[in-house]
Design a binder for these strands. Structure first.
Lengths: 162, 162
DNA sequence: CCGGCCTTGGTATAGTATATCGTACTCTAT
DNA sequence: ATAGAGTACGATATACTATACCAAGGCCGG
């Protein structure tokens, strides 16, 4: 069923230009609110991260920047990515050493990722149930929870079908 | 004040020699069951991984092997670690690029880690509640779950007290 | 205009992981 | 015991990921 597209997978025919535009608009607003500068470089890096719903490596971003004709070196990219993560516009996927645009920027949140081994997309979740289970387990052990890394790998809905 | 030790942190006065001996004994048994060879190198690497309850990096293991007077190079270590992970004796901590002995070898399990930012110890959990929440979230999204990375960082019980 | 702070450019290097090839070892079946 | 197959290890080279450090330029409040 559902002639309309599914949620957010690679098989979607969703208007990805809108994903990027929305991300950039949100970024401008958030940076303005926080008194941070949303420079051209940062914008371009965010754009590149949002180019797909697959996590992208820092060096892949670097190649793209160079392809732009821009002079760039690893620190250029890492600084931009670190900034974007700090303001909550980008997440790092630890298990892939890669970066992905945050699906819900602006709101403080602990997110989880479903990473498809077939198509490479990573879908961001914000499951209160998972978060509650994590908090409960930490509490049981007297552990003061600060950071969460939840990365689930497997096969996404679209890839299972095909 | 608590003169008695807590469960499993760096502050413990637990008999760590027993941790190591148990891990080696379990390893021998598991490898025998699976028809795998538990070689001297593999045993030594497992010992080194178990030297503390802190995850250890591959290159730190390598240094220790060299200190033994053994000739060793990165592939030496990575092969041994890959083997130990394959048979379920060691886990990789993605967020640290480091390795830690499995607390419950032999049993198939999806584990989670509580990683203390102060003392560096990583405690392995097997919370059915977390696992159920993960499975449920994946199921809700039509995602066929294969691998789980759950790494929580924060402050452990012992370090909170001090 | 000046001075300070933030951002970026550029080089070098550290840290993590794998590809590849050759040799030696272990086990099994004869 | 020995040949052959399969596995494990030694060794070199290289790829991939990330950070330290210093210099130069841009932005902004005084």
């Amino acid at each position: 069923m559902s002639s309309s597209a599914a949620e957010h997978s690679h098989a979607d025919h969703h208007d990805h230009g809108k994903c990027i535009a929305d991300a950039l608009a949100a970024a401008r607003e958030i940076c303005a609110q926080r008194g941070e500068r949303f420079t051209e470089l940062r914008g371009r890096v965010l754009e590149l991260v949002w180019e797909s719903h697959r996590p992208i490596g820092a060096y892949a971003v670097l190649e793209r920047l160079k392809a732009d004709g821009r002079s760039a070196a690893p620190p250029t990219v890492y600084r931009a990515l670190d900034f974007l993560m700090e303001v909550g516009l980008v997440h790092r996927i630890e298990s892939l050493n890669a970066y992905i645009g945050c699906a819900h920027p602006g709101a403080a949140h602990a997110s989880q990722f479903l990473i498809c081994k077939d198509c490479g997309t990573a879908e961001e979740l914000e499951s209160p149930a998972i978060d509650a289970a994590l908090a409960a387990a930490a509490g049981d052990h007297g552990f003061k929870l600060a950071g969460r890394v939840v990365e689930l790998s497997g096969t996404c809905k679209s890839c299972t079908g095909s």
